[in-house]
């Protein structure tokens, strides 16, 4: 069994893992929601989002595995090996998406803050000079655009709904805000990708994200902490919150418990 922790990472593989891990972990949070939606219609919608996210995760991680295999002699990874055999510190997802589902306001606030970033990111990636990235991004973008529409509407409904729903949504935004710094702070991997023409540059992405957040929160009659508030970061470099370990323990239970199994 190849030790997936020992893989060397180029900016491209590192970046593909960030993309894949974020949608994988957010997809896993949707799997946890199964049977818990506030209405049956919403059950359908949440699982459609979950299906989209797992599909995107499979596309990004498959490409990441192929890149790693091409760079490293003897490497035979696939998307499942990356999803189910890596430890928490090897995951590169955003801290935002590993936060627990909480109540429906927490779930929707998390989704909205992510979608508002995901859409302009994918728009940029769809223009990438790497045709594979462009193709996966273009497909994901259609899905993410719908996700953003839905999550925006829920933020507005709950923010501009009852007193209780407004309080819950405001609390959710305030709680999750500290995890949004990672969305817009570019590190050397992000910069290398942007410089190579493979990913959007910081300026466009940040401006779009902020504009969407401000517009929707205003419609929802909600406020938000300042954009330059203290931010909790580290997910993109493998420094996670306590939640990820439990999420992975559950998700990876079968492949880890039966390491000799080669098929499921």
């Amino acid at each position: 069994m190849q030790n997936v922790s020992q893989i060397t990472r180029t900016p491209l593989t590192e970046y593909l893992l960030r993309l894949g891990d974020s949608v994988l972990v957010l997809g896993q949070r949707h799997a946890e929601l199964c049977g818990k939606a506030p209405a049956l219609e919403e059950e359908m919608a949440l699982m459609n989002v979950g299906l989209d996210l797992f599909g995107q995760a499979r596309n990004w991680l498959t490409y990441a595995a192929e890149q790693i295999n091409a760079e490293q002699a003897g490497s035979e990874l696939d998307a499942d090996a990356l999803a189910f055999k890596r430890d928490a510190q090897d995951f590169r997802n955003l801290l935002l998406v590993e936060q627990p589902n909480g109540d429906f306001a927490d779930t929707m606030a998390r989704q909205f803050l992510f979608d508002a970033w995901h859409v302009p990111l994918l728009e940029g990636l769809a223009q990438a000079s790497d045709p594979r990235i462009a193709e996966v991004a273009a497909k994901s973008l259609k899905e993410a655009t719908y996700h953003l529409r839905r999550s925006s509407e829920w933020v507005v409904r709950l923010g501009d709904g009852t007193e209780e729903s407004r309080a819950r949504m405001q609390r959710a935004i305030d709680n999750l805000w500290r995890f949004t710094g990672e969305l817009v702070q570019f590190d050397e991997v992000d910069q290398a990708m942007a410089d190579a023409g493979l990913a959007p540059d910081a300026g466009t992405l940040v401006a779009r994200w902020k504009a969407t957040v401000e517009k929707v929160l205003e419609a929802a009659t909600l406020s938000h902490p300042p954009f330059d508030a203290w931010m909790y970061t580290g997910g993109k470099t493998g420094h996670h919150t306590e939640h990820l370990g439990f999420l992975l323990a559950e998700m990876q239970y079968l492949p880890r418990t039966y390491p000799d199994a080669t098929v499921w």
Partner: peptide
């Protein structure tokens, strides 16, 4: 049919249920 709080939600719920 679907249940929904408003027309927009009805459209989306219909999309989730009847066009999978």
């Amino acid at each position: 049919s679907v249940h929904a709080a408003d027309r927009q939600m009805a459209l989306e719920n219909a999309r989730e249920l009847y066009t999978r």
